[in-house]
Amino acid sequence: MRTLYLDAFSGISGDMFIGALLDLGIDFKQFKTELAKLNVPGYHLHAERIAKSSIYGTDFDVHLPDAVHKDAGFIEAIPAQHHEHSHIHEADHGHSHSHSDEVRHLKEVEAIIDHSDLSDYVKTNAKRVFTEIAQSEAVVHNLPLSDVHFHEVGALDSIVDIVGAFVALELLGVDQVYSSELTDGSGFIKVAHGLMPVPVPAVMQMRVGSSIPIKQNRNLNTELITPTGMGIVKTIVDQFCPIPNDQTIMQVGYGFGNRETPQLNALRVMLCEKKN
């Protein structure tokens, strides 16, 4: 039985998770071939082994057209009588503001996944993550779930990150996932409409009814756990604990985050096998 262990000493995001799994040795060409079964154009994948703090790991990113800002995620479709514009809250990397009418609702994202050639495992779990994030945003912004939607470009970035996470897990042949407690930053992060507390509201909302352990690093005034990362954790982790004594660590991988922090900003993962 193969176990994946997440050592989330610097939080988790979608690209950190995929980068860490690629660092364990997943063939990048095979990963791209499988992800292409999503049948959605308009993106380019980048993965490179680099060193940060003299530690080598994999930097993974989804490149989108230069003319647009990819970090636009959820839009809260507030009725015009309440607000003169819509708000965007990015689901993985940062925050931005837009007036674009190009949006995808949750049902449309689910339809893209359902109509793809991906495996049932990838489809089912990717939709679970999207639903987790959308439900949390709906509560935070006091909206019906049907009104929560993605900006066109932010949706593409999120779709590739979330679907890619389960493509990578399937290629790795993991049977179960354990994790350490998660670490987030603290303080506030600046968004288009002011300062947002860390953990960000969507992540905090996803903690409701769960027993996911999170500690805050008071020395880091930034977001470390993104809504995408939290959604993945809620979907895949079977148990939060130290590495069990009956597991032998076979490989270690690192996936780097985009934020520059005073300490190593990476997700460390261990591929383990049960001792005979």
Rank of each mutant, 00 (worst) to 15 (best):
Y5D: 07
G11P: 04
I12W: 10
M16E: 06
G19F: 06
A20F: 04
L22W: 07
L24C: 11
Q30M: 14
K37C: 02
L38G: 07
N39C: 12
N39Q: 14
G42V: 10
Y43H: 11
A47Y: 04
A47E: 09
E48Q: 14
R49E: 11
K52N: 05
S54C: 13
Y56P: 01
V62F: 05
H63R: 15
H69A: 15
K70D: 12
D71G: 13
D71I: 08
G73A: 13
F74E: 06
I75W: 05
A77D: 12
Q81V: 13
H83P: 01
H87S: 05
A91N: 10
G94P: 00
S98C: 07
H99G: 06
S100H: 13
E102W: 12
V103G: 00
V103T: 14
K107N: 14
E110T: 10
D114F: 04
H115W: 08
D120A: 14
K123L: 05
T124R: 14
N125I: 04
K127L: 03
R128I: 13
F130A: 07
T131D: 06
T131Y: 05
E132Q: 12
A138F: 03
H141A: 06
L143V: 02
P144D: 12
S146Q: 10
V148I: 14
H149T: 07
F150I: 00
H151E: 13
V153P: 01
A155I: 00
L156Q: 07
I162E: 01
I162P: 00
G164W: 03
V167Y: 03
E170W: 05
E170G: 05
E170A: 04
L171V: 08
L172W: 00
G173P: 08
G173I: 10
V174R: 06
D175Y: 10
D175H: 15
Y178F: 15
Y178M: 08
S186R: 03
F188N: 12
V191P: 01
A192R: 10
A192E: 09
G194V: 09
L195F: 14
Q205N: 13
G209T: 08
S210V: 12
I214S: 07
R218V: 11
N219L: 12
L220E: 05
E223Q: 11
L224V: 01
P227A: 09
G229R: 05
I232G: 04
V233H: 01
V233I: 10
T235V: 02
I243R: 03
P244R: 03
D246A: 13
D246R: 14
T248W: 11
I249H: 12
G253M: 02
F256V: 00
P262N: 08
E273M: 09
E273S: 11
